[in-house]
Design a protein around this nucleic acid. Sequence first.
DNA 1: GACCAGGCACATC
DNA 2: GATGTGCATGGT
Length: 212
Amino acid sequence: MGTKLLEIYQILFDHFGPRNWWPADSAFEMIVGALLTQNTAWKNVEKAIMNLKHLGPITPEGLKRLPPSKLKDAIRPAGYYNQKTKRLQNIIEVLFKYYEGDLDLLFALPTETLRERLLAVSGIGPETADSILLYGAERPVFVIDTYTIRILSRHGLIAEEVSYAEAQEWIMDNLPFEVPLFNEFHALFVALGKEYCRPKPKCEGCPLENFS
DNA sequence: GACCAGGCACATC
DNA sequence: GATGTGCATGGT
């Protein structure tokens, strides 16, 4: 089964090329983007990030200093702005309370512990935590999202209704633990999902059109 | 105007 | 443990 997954990876890589994820200037900005993109189109997140950059550097210190109303205003384009303001404040609060506002100190934790600490922050669920682990802290953790499950189930590799943990276990049991592979593969799933694997698929031209 | 987007917390059964 | 609902802007 691992072979099939690697076949898919190869097809997607040949079609889309390297994705160079995550699109962010720093690990902290990556985290901000991960929170803002929850159930939200990346295009809208880009606007929010741009707004934030105009207000100052996107750092734990910079965002902590920002008046909440300014923060809320800046991220408005990303939607759910009340919730997301709170979520950003939650992670920032943890950073200052336990890690001197220094992301590197948090990232010094071993992977399992780090994942638990992230999940303990209200607003960080499994996908956001794993995104931070993979793209921020460069740990070999595979990120699952709606596209991943939709694509794999439509090709009969997993059931449509599998849980996040089940999908993750299945993939990680069938791939070598390599950060660059996990990084690229998830980004490729998203690239394919955006273009061809929406709820109403347009399968003509999909690189996996004839894959079985 | 409906449908959807790189989810998550919380209520309820 | 499973299922349902609110959160909100902006593109198709």
